[in-house]
């Protein structure tokens, strides 16, 4: 019995002495990086979806290494971003999303275009990126509620957002997303009501600049607000959608 008390005491002593109370960590990251991702032509924010098929920031901290492992964080669906937990340092910053890439390569891997920004992040650093979206998707008029069959019809128009013909791929589809909350897009929609128009081959290109009417499927349950948004995309890379902004509609 006595023995085991000694052993326990010794064990606790060992445990206690194994750690010193000295503060040996870096201070926690506290710098802020904030800004907007803007359409270079209209200077309006580029619309996207929340999460990993939307837009994201790529931070490469050059303070320590020339080839650092990138740190990613996502922009918000309205094209703004803000991260308040960044280590102080020198960074190369890029954004990825449904727009002409900031870094482009030729066929043999040489960088031909590089619009990344290298800057120090300290305190609150603001930076805006001007990009060329693949498509501009815009509302034409307001959504219309069809009370006879409880659907909503919308009109929309998409045009090329870039003059760079290297990014004039075929338009593959246009999608009216319907969701009961404001996070609406390809990441979050109700497939019972959302409607997709697919285009074969080059068929979609003929729709450029045309007004397209899309109607929701099935009967929308009433007495609530639905959030609508239209996305369209080109057959490029990871095929992310370009979006309109979000319009709520109250179904009586």
């Amino acid at each position: 019995m006595k023995n085991s008390i000694y052993h326990t005491a010794l064990f606790i002593l060992l445990l206690a002495s194994a750690c010193t109370r000295e503060y040996d960590d870096y201070p926690e990251p506290s710098e802020t990086l904030a800004g907007n991702i803007l359409d270079a032509a209209s200077k309006k924010n580029v619309q996207s979806e929340a999460g990993d098929r939307g837009m994201r920031l790529v931070l490469e901290e050059l303070s320590w290494s020339d080839t650092p492992t990138p740190y990613y964080f996502f922009a918000m669906q309205d094209g703004t971003f803000r991260n308040t937990k960044i280590f102080k340092g020198n960074y190369r910053i890029s954004v990825e999303g449904p727009f002409v890439p900031l870094v482009q390569y030729d066929g043999s891997g040489n960088i031909t275009v590089d619009k990344r920004k290298t800057m120090d992040i300290a305190g609150t650093s603001n930076v805006d990126f001007e990009v060329e979206p693949f498509l501009n998707v815009e509302w034409v008029g307001e959504p219309v509620y069809n009370s006879t069959d409880q659907t909503v019809s919308i009109q929309v128009r998409f045009t090329r957002g870039t003059a760079n013909t290297g990014f004039h791929q075929n338009i593959t589809d246009v999608f009216l997303f319907v969701s009961p909350n404001t996070y609406v897009g390809n990441n979050n929609y109700d497939n019972k009501y959302s409607a997709q128009v697919n285009y074969n081959g080059t068929d979609g290109n003929a729709q450029l600049g045309q007004t397209i009417t899309i109607t929701t499927k099935d009967r929308l349950p009433g007495k609530r607000t639905w959030y609508l948004r239209v996305g369209a995309r080109v057959d490029y890379g990871l095929k992310y959608y370009n979006y309109t902004d979000i319009k709520p509609i109250i179904i009586p």
Binding site: T67, Y105, G107, S108, G109, N110, D235, Y236, G237, L238
Partner: peptide, 17 residues
Amino acid sequence: NQVQLFDGSQNRLCGIP
């Protein structure tokens, strides 16, 4: 394939010419 990814030394990690 349409995806392309290069490393810093002109190696195409994703995709083949």
